[in-house]
Nucleic acid binder design. Structure first.
Length: 803
RNA sequence: GCUGGUGUGGCGGAAUGGCAGACGCACGGGACUUAAAAUCCCGAGGUGGCAACACCGUGUGGGUUCGACUCCCACCACCAGCACCA
């Protein structure tokens, strides 16, 4: 059979009939939104790994349609980004051209897989019709005070310019591998930290896979503690942040970040200023990465001349600086309790500072007894005045109360996550729609002038001083201020790659709207996304950003939901046959088109569903596609064994009903491998029966349709069951048929399997056990012995314990 | 270092605490064929045995249980993420 021709035929019919185009409202139908992350159309094209997750979500979408849902299953392109820009620089062609070329390949690849995508809703983030609204959304952030231009230390890559924290790995640029350095620069930032608490807590409302929630929580890094004021003996005060207030009597010194402003303010009081200054200078030369890398030795120095008072006991405490304290987190200052914090312990050892143990339960001469070890174990305080004898948990509350009453402390939440640096000095991104006027300051581009189009440029490289190439186009940069009409300049920074993907799932709901980014009614029809599938690499950042944008839009009344995604899952990676990630340079990339040419898309899809647990990594194998092809052939072969019959026969009742149950549940649980396996079992049973009737065949084809949509529709029409598979209905199983008349059960004596018995599960336990005791092998084992216990677990096991 | 995940035949992988290895690949045997391919049927964890059968088997060592791949404790190996977050 020429599968490829059949598949082409159906793909054309689906396209001509606009089968999978969906309206926002269909009378009497419930809506379901199935979303898979849109691809970045790189020059590499798609490989079989993409096909696995696309066809998996396609299966979910197709099944939902057959179950009577109105299903939105869209696709698009995340087209801005560094890769296209680099190719543009290399090939000296506009990135628009590169992207158009890549999208064409990508569409061709996707189409031959036979996905039930509504292509009329396709979007592309670099299309001005789309990025007009990305710019508009930025302006809403600005108008609500959530976007501002601020000097900040940024990661600077000599090749790629400014990088987000996320783009730096091990002190190196994640794109080009160059060493990065810290550089201060005025940057547009989005104040995502204002949403940190909700981004953390609202995860409880979602049904994300547990590891994804953990990833989000870790990235946000919420901690709850106490912020305490310490008075300087020399006048003035500073604050520290701690999550271990119970150890406050164990303070033997304080550590400030080298950049802490208290140091500069008290320069004249510091007796060893040259030493302190030298240390600050040395620390500032290190990148964040180097500071982290030198974790083993805790460097720093005493700030001679400054001391402070511990508010709980009035003790005078020395002050140090050390670069293990980060100025960007908490208050940039810590109370050091070497007995109960390993970093403080190491610092104290290195600088000969005494220690005071305040929690009993471990020896602190070699290493600190830390919160991870003492919390929740009922450990008690020592050396802590009136708090001595309280448990750690009691002391946390009591000490906080005391400090709050004294007016020197407050409870405080802190987050590891920092504000989102939203500027890039690159060409290939959405221009940030702002104008800088010498008189009026930053002025937004009027909304009716959007989009701010990317102008054509000669060269796409950033300038030598690290500005966007847009800054070189005078006629683009120089504009009149929308406010006062005077001479002004456009912002030349562009947005990061994450911008367009932060709201694309909303645009799908209303992709051609030229009045709004998406109408509230359209969003209300589809959101929240029922199932969102994407790669593990986007679990932290993209997901966080998209949730942030949605929460903001929810707050200003433009989104109907506080959480945009109900469930989120991440597929495993399809590795090359050699067990390593597919990459062009290793030559282990498999182009789905090659597999489809040989075996057809249905076989590829079945094999990718069957090859293993969807959430675990798997190695690609060509052999598997062949075996799936064999299975498709067997399904086709059944057509020759067709006999009349409008009802499922008794002979196949159990297999058919069990398959319905199993496949339905497995697709819901995204256990495609066992769903396919059950279909194979059903087909095997039909072959064993040497016949199959129409009712049974219809059920088989329907259950298989989500995975193999072409061949099932072909057989469906050939058998005269209908002309459009969308008119089929997903079968329901008959619970009564799942009970077999006689069932095999293992019989054990003293937990050892002795026999396998056929029993009638409808009988009473006593009848069954008596019948089983009559079996020869069992008789031999229990004769002349006393049965001390009889265990019967219906459907599972019988076990006699004898003495 | 911390967090999370994984560990089952030659291979990919199944198993609400209940006959471990479903289903498939590769393999062996048979049918069909002049022959091969394709297809269909049968077999198969390991060791020993002609065989019936016996013993051993889910990373390692303990534990709970009538019964453990599954639950608990300790450990090993590999993979991924985070890495001074006070």
């Amino acid at each position: 059979m020429d599968y490829v021709a059949i598949e082409k035929k159906w793909q054309k019919i689906w396209e001509d009939e606009k089968r999978f185009e969906v309206k926002n409202y269909v009378n009497g139908k419930e809506n379901a939104y199935v979303l898979i992350e849109f691809p970045y159309p790189s020059g590499k094209g798609l490989h079989t790994g993409h096909v696995r997750s696309y066809s998996a979500m396609d299966a979910v979408a197709r099944k939902k349609r057959l179950q009577g849902y109105n299903v939105l299953f869209p696709m698009g392109c995340d087209a801005f980004g560094l890769e296209a820009e680099r190719t543009a620089i290399k090939e000296k062609k506009p990135p628009q051209e590169i992207v158009a070329r890549n999208i064409a390949t990508f569409k061709e690849q996707l189409k031959c897989v036979g996905l039930s995508i509504d292509w009329s809703r396709a979007i592309n983030t670099c299309d001005p019709e789309y990025y007009k609204w990305t710019q508009w959304l930025f302006l809403q952030f600005y108008k609500h005070g959530l976007a501002e231009k601020r000097y900040a230390n940024v990661n600077w890559c000599p090749n790629c310019g400014v990088l987000a924290n996320e783009e730096v790995e091990d002190g190196k640029c994640c794109q080009c591998g160059s060493e990065t350095v810290q550089k201060p620069k005025a940057q547009w930032i989005l104040k995502i930290t204002e949403y940190a608490d909700r981004l953390n807590d609202d995860l409880d409302e979602t049904e994300y896979m547990e590891h994804i929630k953990l990833g989000q929580r870790h990235w946000i890094g919420k901690s709850e503690g106490v912020q305490v004021k310490f008075k300087l003996v020399q006048g003035g005060e500073f604050e520290i942040y701690t999550t271990c207030i119970e150890t406050i009597y164990g303070i033997t010194f304080m550590v400030l970040a080298p950049e802490h402003k208290l140091i500069q303010e008290n320069k004249d009081k510091i007796k060893n200023w040259p030493e302190v200054e030298a240390y600050i200078k040395q620390a500032s030369k290190k990148s964040e990465f180097e500071r982290a890398e030198l974790a083993k030795t805790k460097t720093g120095c005493l700030v001679d001349g400054l001391t402070c008072i511990n508010p709980v006991n009035g003790k005078e405490v020395p002050i140090f600086i050390g670069d293990f304290v980060l100025v960007s987190y908490g208050t940039g200052a810590v109370m050091a309790v070497p007995s109960h914090d390993q970093r403080d312990f190491e610092y104290a050892v290195a600088h000969n500072i005494p220690m005071i143990q305040v929690i009993e339960g471990a020896d602190v001469s070699e290493k600190a007894f830390e919160k991870g070890d003492y919390l929740g174990k009922g450990c008690k305080l020592i050396n802590s005045q009136e708090f001595t004898g309280l448990t750690v948990e009691e002391a946390k509350v009591a000490i906080t109360d005391k400090l709050v009453k004294m007016g020197v402390a407050k409870k405080q939440k802190n987050f590891r996550m920092q504000d989102w640096v939203f500027s890039r000095q690159r060409y290939w991104g959405e221009p940030i729609p702002m104008i800088n006027c010498p008189k009026c300051g930053w002025v937004p581009v009027p909304e009716n002038e959007l989009p701010v189009l990317l102008p054509k440029v000669e060269s796409y490289e950033p300038t030598k001083d690290g500005e966007s190439p847009l800054s070189l186009i005078d006629e683009w940069v120089n504009v009149k201020c929308p406010c006062c009409g005077g001479d002004a300049k456009r912002e030349t920074d562009t947005m990061p790659g994450w911008a367009g993907s932060s709201w694309y799932f909303m645009r799908y709901c209303d992709p051609h709207n030229d009045k709004e980014f998406a109408s509230y009614d359209a969003l209300k029809a589809w959101l929240p996304v029922g199932l969102y599938n994407g790669g593990n690499e986007h679990t932290n950042r993209h997901l966080l950003y998209a949730r942030f944008w949605d929460k903001f839009l929810y707050d200003i009344g433009l989104s109907p939901v506080n959480e945009p995604f109900k469930a989120r899952v991440s597929q495993g990676i399809v590795l090359g046959a050699n067990g390593v990630k597919m990459s062009k340079s290793l030559g282990n990339v498999v182009d789905p088109r090659d597999v489809i040419k040989e075996y057809g898309a249905d076989s590829l899809r079945i094999w990718e569903a069957f090859m293993g647990d969807y959430f675990a990594d798997v190695n690609w194998s060509d052999e598997g596609a062949k075996s799936a092809n064999r299975f498709v052939g067997r399904v086709c072969g059944l057509k020759d064994m067709l006999v009349p019959g409008d009802e499922v026969s008794n002979e196949l009742a159990y297999e058919v009903n069990y398959a319905i149950k199993k496949v339905t549940e497995d697709i819901d649980k995204i256990k495609f491998n066992t769903a396919i396996s059950q279909l194979m079992i059903l087909v095997n049973a039909m072959y064993k029966a040497k016949r199959v009737n129409n009712a049974e065949y219809k059920i088989l084809l329907t259950l298989l349709n989500p995975f193999a949509p072409h061949i099932t529709e072909e057989l469906w029409t050939e058998c005269g069951y209908g002309k459009n598979f969308l008119n089929a209905t997903w079968p329901k199983y008959d619970e009564t048929k799942l009970v077999q008349n006689l069932e095999e059960i293992a019989v054990k004596v003293n937990s050892k399997i002795i026999a396998s018995a056929k029993i009638n599960p409808a009988n009473t336990q006593e009848e069954i056990l008596n019948a089983v005791k009559g079996i020869e092998e069992i008789k031999a084992q229990i004769n002349n012995k006393t049965i001390v216990r009889e265990i019967y677990v219906p459907g599972r096991i019988i076990n006699f314990i004898v003495k």
